[in-house]
Design a protein around this nucleic acid. Structure first.
Length: 430
RNA sequence: GCCCGGGUAGUGUAGUGGCCUAUCAUGAUUGCCUGUCACGCAAUCGACUCGGAUUCGAAUUCCGACCCGGGCGCCA
């Protein structure tokens, strides 16, 4: 029976392990093999005069990163890494790795991201890369867990849709039998329909697609979005939930991922403290005006230079609230006492935007008006508008970029590092 | 979409007109080595993205193609 390397101790006695050949050091009469599985690395020591012919032959034939099964007694040896080593009675090559390897798994020589993504299966064998995805998995678990306990209904909505939903963003057209269809840019409209369906609290974690030809370290053409929608809630209530999601996720990672964080050499992992500051858009503009060269005025979008300047000033997670209605989507609810601003918000990390949300317009006629005001044709929103005619609760929600959440949490320099098989303008394979 | 920068052994790099039969590291192959832990030592192998131009001479300059990285805009 195979046992994980992590559980191999001097007390184990006899053990069978399976894994990849991480490194080989042949000293002549004595050879050391480092065998790596998901849980760790074990030294296999071969005194050439004492082991069988078969073991010797296999040890000579094997290449780095081959898959092997090795069994033998475990000895407590102070000189060995981890204080224990295995002297093989059997040494089976299950799958011989070709040589040379497309990249150096042992990390003596670095590889560029592009090279790594081309051979992602090898890249992820590196403990520091595997750690990213272990942490991502833990973070997603924490989010699912939190939302489940808060009474949210987990939903899945179509990714193949008939029409543009929000306008602005470019969509990927696809051939859908004899019709034209698109990949969905956001579950926004479907979440809202679920409010009309009486589900009150829903969330979805799923892919979103944007056909923008951007070329940056924080954009993907296929991203993972964490989306919620809540009935009878306003923007302040869903901001509170978002804040909780962030804090709980960091807490869970902090509590359960110490070895993965160590593999990534992260020693200063800090759980952000809520509540996050609520910075009105107008104040954000004032900060940006003072700190950046380029002219920026009330009513402008906040560009990346401004985003960084404001982030540096705020020093941690924060919300930008009370946005001008004009620069937010049609479904954002204007304030009753000042319709020039609306109940929309962005959640910001000092490095970039993580999430955006709003209380939504739930009145049918007001929504039609706002769609028209944005220069969009209300007729093409028929399927979306219909639920608003048969009793729609007031509601609010947000979408949080999962990839950016992981990127900022682990201080990764490129969002592609947080995605197993990223899709960007140039990459469709693997 | 606009604007920069770049493509040299499997990988990561040095090389700004001749000193390049191309540097270094890692790797691979072979040999020596019984306590390595980025093992050590020795030998060997392995590369200038493609096409055109300039030049006596091009990895190096110019043009085009292809590929890659980054910034901006927009966004999550």
């Amino acid at each position: 029976m195979r046992i994980p390397i992590q559980s191999v101790t001097p007390e184990t006695g006899h053990a069978e392990i399976c894994g990849f050949v991480h490194e080989v050091r042949d000293l002549g009469g004595l050879a050391f093999f480092l065998i790596r599985d998901r849980t760790g690395i074990l030294q296999v020591t071969i005194p050439k005069k004492k082991v069988s012919e078969a073991v010797l032959a296999a040890a000579k034939a094997v290449s780095r990163e081959s898959v092997v099964r090795i069994s033998g007694p475990i000895k407590a040896v102070e000189k060995a890494p981890g204080g224990r080593e295995l002297v093989p009675e059997t040494f089976e090559i299950i799958s011989l790795a070709e040589s040379p390897l497309p990249l150096d798994v042992s990390e003596k020589v670095s590889a560029e991201l592009d090279t790594r993504l081309d051979a992602r299966f090898l890249d992820v064998r590196r403990p520091r890369v595997a750690a990213v995805f272990a942490i991502r998995s833990a973070a997603m678990h924490a989010i699912n867990n939190y939302l489940h306990h808060e009474g949210f209904l987990s939903i899945t909505t179509p990714k193949i849709v008939a029409a543009a939903t929000e306008g602005g963003t470019e969509l990927f057209p696809i051939a859908y039998f004899d019709k034209e269809a698109y990949l969905n840019q956001s579950p926004q409209l479907f979440k809202q329909m679920m409010m009309a369906a009486g589900c009150e609290k829903v969330y979805e974690i799923g892919p979103i697609f944007r056909a923008e030809e951007h070329n940056t370290t924080k954009h993907l053409n296929e991203a993972t979005s964490i989306d919620i929608e809540v009935s009878y809630a306003d923007h302040t209530e869903v901001m509170r939930i978002l804040e909780e999601v962030i804090v709980k996720t960091y807490e869970y990672v902090d509590k359960t991922c110490s070895s993965h964080l160590a593999n990534m050499e992260i020693t200063d992992f800090a759980v952000p403290k809520g509540p996050f500051p609520r910075l009105p858009y107008s104040e954000a503009i004032k900060i940006a005006k003072k700190k950046i060269e380029d002219p920026i005025k009330y009513g402008d979008d906040i560009g990346s230079a401004a985003e960084r300047a404001i982030g540096a000033e705020m020093g941690g997670h924060y919300f930008i609230v009370d946005w001008p209605t004009e620069i937010r989507p049609y479904y954002a609810m204007p304030y009753e006492n000042d319709p020039t601003i609306c109940k929309a918000f962005d959640l910001m990390h000092p490095r970039m935007e993580l999430a955006s949300g709003a209380q939504r317009v739930h009145n049918h006629d007001q929504l039609v008006q706002q769609i028209a005001k944005k220069g969009l044709n209300p007729e093409s929103f028929d399927f979306y508008l219909r639920p608003f005619r048969y009793g729609m609760p007031p509601h609010a929600g947000w979408g949080l970029g999962a990839d950016r959440l992981i990127m900022t949490m682990l201080n990764l320099s490129n969002v592609r590092e947080a995605v197993l098989f990223p899709r960007d303008m140039h990459r469709l394979v693997p």
